[in-house]
Design a protein around this nucleic acid. Structure first.
Lengths: 378, 378
DNA sequence: CTTCCCGACTAGAACGTACTAGTTTTCGGG
DNA sequence: CCCGAAAACTAGTACGTTCTAGTCGGGAAG
């Protein structure tokens, strides 16, 4: 094993950093203004110096900023000739409207804030569709991430300062008290979480029913011993747990129901199924996981242990996220219909902004049968 | 199988939407201003009406907005008594500084723009650390996502309008031409991608060396037939391919090297390894995947096919993302050190903002040996 | 030849904050 | 009691837009 040295293709090995310790802080800051002659003064050269403003464009075109504004916004009030000229000059100068100033001036910012979890595939799906849904309504979505090292309240505060018109929280874990404080400041909407609060709207799937669909499906395939690896304290987990127990009871199989504390990560699923396989009692013939990530963990462990899926054990996930759809996974799962949910969330948020009363919108889930469920083994 | 109906616990079954078709657009918009008497006029009631401003706080406290500004920013210039009082009133009123106005006023917006891919775990890791690194330097990170339905140029434009001081692009796929246009507008920095452009900085791992580390490791374990499932056209993939071929050649094993067109998804890895297993020639004893996601796809297929890892086949990933660290996966991988890379990226971006020349910073990767590699089978 | 209107364009006031350049108050020392 | 200086506070402008309320020509209608 030869000790590797940095590859030769890079100009310099490590952290290269050229020249001069100090750079002139602000080179030619003060530039005299009353001088209309040379139109293109910014154009060439590097990206230095504050970006061009509307005033720069106006000066270069020899017109007022108001007229430039009219052209840029594309509203009536300018001749075609001027329009053409202004747009060309703006492009030459590399002018981009300053969003801060726009938003400040405009009565409504037309911005929806979205808080999501960085590593949750389903949240990724939702965010993607929220972008689209917001755009469809002439809104912009600005996103703020939650991660192990970034608390939800930090993420929310960032949005608050952004002065968005409403906040959409994906699978929030904020305590009721904080949610109430938030709702007092701006319209707030929970997604994929039940809202017990009067001031807070909510868009979510019917979790009880979703799991029941899964249970029905499995029992229809002849399964009896079914386990549920739940979401611990996560939003929705108690509903899903309830749906599981109720679904089993409906078929008179309450005694065969098995609920394990889980979580919403792959590891939680892995741990849960490991326990099921290693314990004294015979393992279940089917597992319903809290979500797709959890189910993925279950699948991984089963594969490692050489248990056939669905031959020996069937597995059902929840969310129908990107994970479930992957061709080599083909997870049977309960679809939350990310697009529909995003759509409903944006619509509901817009309704709140217009002064509507907070509602609880419950979407009907759908079972998507793929390759991880099959007839119960003999 | 009994046809499931919406669960009884939800107040109303589907898409509930209460009352009044139309809501008053803007209720009591005009409110007379010159009236200093009742201090707390916003406080109670719902969240309606524009949020309180500095002027509201000042009026309630009977002082000037300038002084409120001083207190809010926490700069010297106000008595402790006033400070306390103002903060309390601000809190009561639910005052939050308007970021748009702040940024507009402040010379520098102290905002870094970050473009990332929503479904790439490694990007998630990077974003998380960039948030932290930026905060450490008194900057804020605003993120803009790329997804199948949201183009990179859309994401970049959103940042541009946000007037951030620099743009950090994670694993960008933008063509050189567009990058140049961008760099002419504001300092731009590529992460995990080589920059051929003079005006664009770059922070990346030494991909050639990274793969070579993996090759060395495998050969040290006795492997000879090694395959590389590459990243197709993705940033960094040509370097990694080169590193693979060169590493194999260094050991005189050029003839045993096998390069497959892949991609950066699980499916690409799954497809690649399926091909390797199904073809005529004997399968390799080790696979180096383009990244962790690709490696995960490989692992899944191997598990499905009942191939022992690392007993029969060893697998190496790249990135050391969240995926690799998961307890039930324990993927051997080349670490890009997300934290270090995020740190370097933020530092480099700040340097660019201060007028520094764009640099190419190359970080030394590190091999993290976990459970998916072992001695070559007999 | 007026009058009026309409399109093209402009002046200037917001929006909510930061900050410079004051002005007033406080207070200790002589 | 007054001076001076620091501390506490304020007026007013600037940031880059949008938008209201205009001005200015010029052509059609009277």
């Amino acid at each position: 094993m030869l000790g590797r040295r940095p590859s030769g293709r890079a100009a310099e090995p490590h952290s290269t950093r050229l020249g001069s310790g100090e750079v002139t802080e602000l080179d030619d800051d003060a530039r005299d203004d009353a001088e209309p002659s040379p139109p293109a003064r910014v154009a060439a050269g590097s990206a230095r110096k504050g970006r061009p403003t509307m005033a720069d464009v106006a000066r270069a075109a020899g017109i007022s900023t108001a007229l430039v504004s009219i052209v840029i916004r594309g509203v009536p009030g300018a001749s075609d000739e001027t329009r053409r000229r202004v747009l060309q000059i703006a492009d030459e100068l590399g002018y981009v409207p300053d969003q801060r100033a726009q938003k400040l001036r405009r009565s409504s910012s037309r911005v929806l804030g979205v808080v999501f979890e960085l590593q949750q595939p389903f949240h990724g799906d939702l965010v993607e569709h929220i972008y689209a849904a917001a755009a469809r309504h002439g809104y912009e979505a600005v996103i703020s991430a939650v991660a192990p090292s970034r608390e939800e309240s930090t993420a929310v505060n960032a949005l608050l300062r952004e002065r968005c018109e409403a906040a959409i929280l994906l699978g929030s874990r904020l305590p009721d008290e904080e949610l109430e404080r938030l709702a007092r400041r701006l319209p707030a909407l929970l997604v994929a979480r039940r809202s017990g609060l009067p001031g807070v709207g909510s868009v979510r799937g019917d979790d009880v029913m979703g799991i029941q669909l899964a249970v029905d499906h499995l029992i229809g395939l002849g399964h009896r011993r079914i386990a549920h690896i739940d979401g611990a304290g996560a939003p929705g987990s108690s509903d899903r747990r309830l749906g599981f127990l109720q679904g089993m009871a409906d078929h008179g199989l309450a005694d065969y129901a098995d609920v394990l504390a889980g979580g919403l990560t792959e590891e939680a699923g892995a741990e849960g199924v490991r326990y099921l396989l290693d314990r004294q009692a015979p393992p279940p013939t089917a597992v319903i996981a809290f979500n797709d990530r959890t189910a993925t963990g279950v699948l991984d462990v089963l594969a490692q242990r050489g248990r056939a899926v669905p031959g020996e054990i069937s597995v059902v996930g929840y969310d129908d996220s990107r994970l479930a759809k992957m061709p080599h996974v083909q997870l049977t799962t309960v679809s939350q219909d990310a697009a529909g949910m995003a759509d409903a969330a944006v619509t509901a948020a817009l309704d709140l902004i217009k002064g509507g009363t907070p509602q609880e919108t419950v979407l009907t889930p759908r079972l998507v049968v793929r390759a991880t469920t099959g007839p119960a083994p003999r």
